[in-house]
Design a binder for these strands. Structure first.
Length: 150
DNA sequence: GCCAACGTTGGC
DNA sequence: GCCAACGTTGGC
C-alpha cells in the first residue's frame, strides 16, 4: 500500500463534504506531475486530505482510493472550467481516482506542526512555495503523521 | 491583499 | 529550443 497527500480548498470541497458524500471522483487536476501521481495510485492506498488556502492549513482527514485510472469526466464537459478541447474519449489526457471517506481528524495536523516535525526532503508539502496538489508520502513519514493525528 | 514560486504560453 | 510574460497556487 502507498501513501499520498491531496490538497483541496475546504471552501470548494472539504473533508466535511467527503464525509457527507462518502465517495467522490477527485476531478479537476490539470498539472502533469500531479496527474502522473494520480495514475500510479492503486485501490487501497491511503490519502491524507489537506485543506489549503485556509487558516490554518493542514491535514484534516483520511481517505482511501477505491478505484484508479478513471478518466476525469470534467475534461469532456464544455461547461466545466476543466474542459480540455484537446482531450478525446479515445485517449483521455487526464486520469484521476475515486476516493472514499475514512476519517475526519478531531484535530487538524497543521502545516506548522508538519514543519516542526519534518524537513522539506521528507515531506514535499512543507517545502516553501510548493504548489503541487497531489504528492507521494513515504511510509515512514505517513506512520508518523498518523501518530500526530491521534 | 501581497507576493514568492513555478508551470504554461507564445514570440522569435 | 529559448526565455520573457503571464497566470495560478497558496501561505501569510
Amino acid at each position: 500500500m502507498n501513501y499520498w497527500l491531496m490538497k483541496s480548498e475546504p471552501d470548494v470541497y472539504g473533508i466535511g463534504d467527503l464525509k457527507r458524500d462518502r465517495q467522490t471522483i477527485w476531478d479537476g487536476v490539470r498539472n502533469y506531475q500531479a496527474r502522473n501521481f494520480l495514475r500510479s495510485m492503486q485501490p487501497g492506498d491511503l490519502v491524507f486530505f489537506y485543506h489549503s488556502n485556509v487558516v490554518p492549513p493542514g491535514i484534516a482527514g483520511l481517505m482511501k482510493v477505491v478505484e484508479s485510472n478513471i478518466a476525469d469526466p470534467t475534461q469532456f464537459d464544455f461547461a466545466s472550467r476543466y474542459y480540455d478541447v484537446k482531450s478525446t474519449k479515445e485517449s483521455p489526457r487526464w486520469q484521476t481516482v475515486c476516493v472514499e471517506f475514512v476519517e475526519e481528524l478531531s484535530t487538524l495536523v497543521s502545516l506548522d506542526t508538519l514543519r516542526s516535525q519534518f524537513s522539506p526532503d521528507d515531506l514535499l508539502v512543507v517545502r516553501p512555495g510548493n504548489r503541487l496538489s497531489v504528492m507521494p508520502i513515504n511510509p515512514e513519514v505517513a506512520q508518523k503523521i498518523l501518530v500526530l493525528a491521534r
